[in-house]
Simulated scan of single mutants.
Amino acid sequence: MDKLRSKPMSSEVSITDDIDATLMFREVQQFRQPWIWVVLSCSSLAALYVAAIPFVLDSNSEDTLVVHIILILFGIIFGVIFPILFYTTKLITEIRSDGLYLSFYPLLFSRIKIPFENIVKAEVKTYHPLREYGGWGIRHSPTGKAYNVSGNRGVQLELANGERILIGSHSPEQLARAIAFSRGR
């Protein structure tokens, strides 16, 4: 049993590598919940307001120059870069003839590949993202890992080493069927 636990159940595949395996299922999810964008817009506007302060205040001392640079950087990072990162983030779930692939672009720089022989069970699950995993995104909790973007439904995988991975999905029944079909071949 220890040998089974030490064997990796998933591997990383470069984003730039072409995958020759046949695509059977693909789902792309993004953060598009209105409440997220209201919070993000308010915080972005506040950060941009803070970044504008150095242009309104007139001071020539070196101490305030450093503070002004910090405020401008804060505004650029939280007012521009962070919203763009949120907007471009995608959870891509693919079932191919050789395994299940997960990509959380641009947060993960490689795809995660889980071969079908490592999947013991895959079942549709309704879950509580905040209570069970602490929210959305790439989450680690005592109940396992979760890759989710929105909603409260997904497919719970149990791997041969006992690891549990939840994959959030807007079509969990289709995803579970694609996994079951591919595992049965």
Rank of each mutant, 00 (worst) to 15 (best):
S41R: 01
T143N: 13
G154K: 07
I77A: 08
E94W: 01
I165K: 09
S61L: 01
V120F: 06
N60W: 07
E163Y: 08
V149D: 06
T126M: 05
Y127M: 10
Y147V: 01
E123A: 04
G168R: 07
P34R: 00
F82V: 15
H68W: 01
L108F: 13
P115R: 04
S43G: 06
F82N: 06
D98E: 12
Y49M: 04
S59V: 09
S61E: 10
S169W: 08
I112A: 07
P129A: 11
E163V: 10
I92H: 02
P129V: 14
S43P: 03
T93L: 08
I72S: 03
I76Y: 01
R164D: 05
L48T: 05
R131F: 08
Q156L: 15
L48M: 09
F109V: 09
L100R: 13
H140D: 06
K113W: 04
V80N: 03
Y101A: 00
R164H: 13
F78C: 02
G134N: 11
R111E: 05
L85Q: 07
T89H: 06
E117G: 07
L102Y: 10
P34W: 03
D63F: 10
F55R: 03
G75K: 02
L157W: 01
I76L: 13
V56Q: 09
A146N: 02
I119Y: 08
V38F: 02
G162P: 06
I138K: 04
E94Y: 01
I112Y: 08
A51R: 00
V67L: 15
I76P: 01
V120C: 08
L65D: 05
A47K: 01
A160E: 14
Y127D: 06
L166A: 03
H170D: 10
P172C: 11
